[in-house]
């Protein structure tokens, strides 16, 4: 009985404590840089698309909401289209972890409400940003051993020139 009275008093005293509610639209909560929100596709430091259409993100995605098609241009791979259906995305971040090129990244932004569900399907134009996102220096083609226009094979960082097979002949 006395315990109940004590509970009543303590609960009443809560009226004089500060509120924990963040009055959202006027007052915004702090979102840490690694918050998993709206997904973007980043570019490398040269301003080229990072995504090499390897499909690893689509495979990793537990809800299968990424769809893309590979195309090729002078040895460089691009996604012809790249589509994320945000009405299904659960913002797990697996795509970001799977991506070998840091192309796909999650950002601290969650304000993407739409009245029409169809509008939640983002195309490549909607996803692609002009910057490098969280990894400013990384450029896949500068470390990968594939040749592209302006970079012969064997000239990547930390890469030795290719072995001439003919020298191995007896």
């Amino acid at each position: 009985m006395l315990g109940n009275v004590r509970t009543l008093i303590l609960t009443f005293l809560h009226a004089f404590q500060s509120r924990v509610t963040v009055q959202y639209p006027e007052e915004r909560p702090y979102l840490p840089p690694r918050y998993r929100g709206r997904i973007i596709l980043s570019r490398d430091p040269d301003g080229e698309e990072r995504c090499v259409a390897c499909n690893l993100c689509a495979v990793a995605c537990p809800v299968d909401c990424i769809s893309l098609q590979k195309t090729e241009e002078q040895g460089r791979w691009y996604p012809e289209y790249f589509r994320i259906n945000f009405s299904r995305c659960i913002f797990c971040g697996f795509c970001e972890e799977a991506c070998p090129t840091y192309a796909i990244q999650l950002t601290p932004d969650f304000e993407m409400s739409e009245y029409n569900r169809q509008n939640l399907v983002y195309e490549k134009e909607d996803l692609l940003i002009s910057g490098t996102g969280k990894y400013p220096d990384y450029s896949f083609y500068h470390v990968a051993g594939v040749g592209i226009p302006g970079k012969e094979r064997g000239t990547s960082e930390h890469e030795r020139p290719p072995v001439d097979l003919h020298t191995l002949l007896p």
Binding site: F12, A15, R19
Partner: peptide, 14 residues
């Protein structure tokens, strides 16, 4: 409404 407001007040909400 009063009840919901007061419950909020006593639960550190609004």
């Amino acid at each position: 409404w009063v009840e919901r407001r007061l419950l909020g007040v006593w639960q550190n909400r609004c």
